[in-house]
Design a protein around this nucleic acid. Structure first.
Length: 263
DNA sequence: ACCCAGGGTAACT
DNA sequence: AGTTACCATGGG
């Protein structure tokens, strides 16, 4: 059945195509489809409301959680707006929500993202899912670490991931062996979790912060890409303003777009 | 033929 | 501790 839900400060295009995730496709002006875990979803944007097509009542809570609809973004935006630049950034675009993504998928996806563009990242991930993931009625699931167990960089050649292939292989090996206790990071502090992720070859500060933010919902993580670095030197030479405390990662999403449009 | 893409590593000062 | 070439691939 189709289920209609209400939500403020939620824009599908801004949320699904902003570069925090790579498996959602735009079907039309207001329509998107994607696969999360073993669930396929077709969702339509309306005016502060959304239609989830052909979903069961049982899955509704899953999607509410995934889209972070239990969090009051209006309140967060109000807090962040104490800062002049964040106020301007939110006035331009404030429809991004932090998706609660699966940790392993987030880890592999952001390893692939380095020195890359969204279009090609999506292509590499599509090929990864087709090669190693479980096939469903509509598409493929993201492969689990077990499905990838033992892969060598050369096994990943069909992905055309370039120099990132050996990074993916290293991540898979260290997660499977327990050298990197990925499942435990949810119970770790931000600092502990980051140290854990940095054990992987090919995971540096920025990728680790993306995994902590998008894969573990650690909103104090503040990924510093080239655009955010420009923001910091231009607007915040003395560091982030106090109003971002605890939600630096959410502020980062607003600032990223603002930087690309205004710097 | 060039340049860049939401970085990271290794090898330098 | 801070800088820089190089890393594969594909699109502009």
């Amino acid at each position: 059945m189709n289920i209609e839900i209400q939500a403020d400060n939620f824009d599908l295009e801004q949320t699904l195509l902003c570069g925090q995730c790579f498996r959602w496709k735009k079907l039309g002006d207001n329509d998107f489809e994607g696969i999360v875990g073993d669930k396929y979803l077709h969702i339509t944007q309306g005016e502060n409301k959304f239609v989830l097509h052909n979903v069961s009542q049982n899955d509704l809570d899953f999607w509410n959680d995934y889209f972070d609809l239990k969090t009051d973004y209006g309140a967060i935006i109000k807090t962040l707006s104490a800062d002049k630049y964040l106020s301007a950034a939110c006035a331009e675009k404030s429809g991004i929500r932090i998706l609660k993504q699966e940790p392993f998928e987030t880890l592999i996806s952001f390893i692939i993202s380095q020195n890359n563009n969204i279009k090609r990242i999506s292509g590499i991930i599509d090929r990864l899912c087709e090669e190693f993931g479980t096939q469903m009625e509509k598409g493929y699931m993201f492969p689990t670490e077990k499905q990838l167990e033992g892969v060598l960089p050369e096994d990943l050649a069909p992905l055309r991931a370039g120099f990132r292939a050996r990074y993916i292989a290293d991540a898979v090996a260290k997660v499977n062996s327990g050298v990197v206790a990925l499942d435990d990071i949810k119970n770790m502090s931000y600092e502990q979790g980051k140290a854990e992720l940095l054990k992987i070859v090919g995971v540096g500060e920025k990728v680790a912060d993306c995994v902590l933010l998008f894969g573990f919902y650690k909103t104090e993580a503040f990924p510093k890409d080239v655009w955010i670095k420009r923001i910091m030197t231009t607007f915040y030479p003395d560091g982030l303003p106090e109003c971002t405390k605890g939600v630096e990662g959410i502020a980062q999403q607003y600032l990223f777009d603002y930087a690309r449009n205004n710097l």
